[in-house]
Nucleic acid binder design. Structure first.
Lengths: 129, 129
DNA sequence: GTGCAGGTTCAACATATGTTGAAGTCAAGT
DNA sequence: ACTTGACTTCAACATATGTTGAACCTGCAC
């Protein structure tokens, strides 16, 4: 069911900027690159739903964890306006899967370094010295 | 103690490139930016120790996990030539601490999204509607 | 309906992370 | 000593991620 709720509030670029903690120019950038989605007023101004600031907050943290804006936009692509917790859960699952894989790969390489077994130096074949 | 070992082998740019799986231009780039350290021959050519390829392999994975080249160079700064497993362990500890923090931050934000509690929309104070 | 804070686009700039090409030098085998 | 492939630096290019400024347009409060 859908709870009765007034006409959904919209947000201007600078409102989303404040709510998400990035510069207005960055909000426009994320719109251009599909991280958030704007509708336009009759006068061509962007209006965002309330999920825009949330998306940007997640996107910034995902970037810090190694994902590109393009990758993040792709992950957000099947998120509706004002996404449900379920939709977020689905995005979260894929996002976490991806970053954990990257961390796993890094850890595995580091473990090889620590083991001192020269696993990474396969190329350096010593026998001929 | 130090095990008896011959004069340590050195590697050219293209050897390190092959051993680490990146382009020669990237090897020079990583040298310029302090991820690896070259000594120079009498004729000004770079020569690397056997750890160079390892460092690059770790660096590439660290980049995928969100660290910048500058950050990686800083972490590698107190790594000696041909680092011991202990030195790698120390670098690994700091590296993993950093990436896990980033993943933790991302997960925390995602958990807030999934909870549907509008934690991220603090800015959107509803009372006036 | 006027004023003006804030919106629009576009181009230029800035930084990070490399790649490519030119012009010249080195090293290693013969 | 020559040759030749690999090395050097430097500048230009390329892509990603934004920021800034100019020139112009909107929305809203008065």
């Amino acid at each position: 069911m859908t709870v009765l709720t007034g006409p959904p509030r919209t947000f201007s670029v600078s409102e989303v900027a404040v709510d998400s903690g990035v510069a207005p120019s960055a909000v426009r950038f994320y719109d251009t690159h599909g991280v958030i989605n704007a509708v336009r007023t009759a006068g061509n101004q962007r209006r965002f739903d309330s999920s825009a600031a949330c998306r940007i907050q997640v996107a910034k943290l995902a970037q810090r964890a190694g994902l590109s804006v393009r990758e993040i936009a792709a992950l957000f692509a099947d998120l509706s306006a004002d996404p449900t917790p379920d939709e977020w859960a689905d995005v979260a699952r894929r996002l976490v899967t991806e970053v954990e894989e990257r961390v796993r790969d890094l850890k595995a390489q580091l473990a090889a370094m620590e083991s001192g077994t020269r696993l990474c130096e396969i190329g350096r074949d010593d026998p001929a010295r």
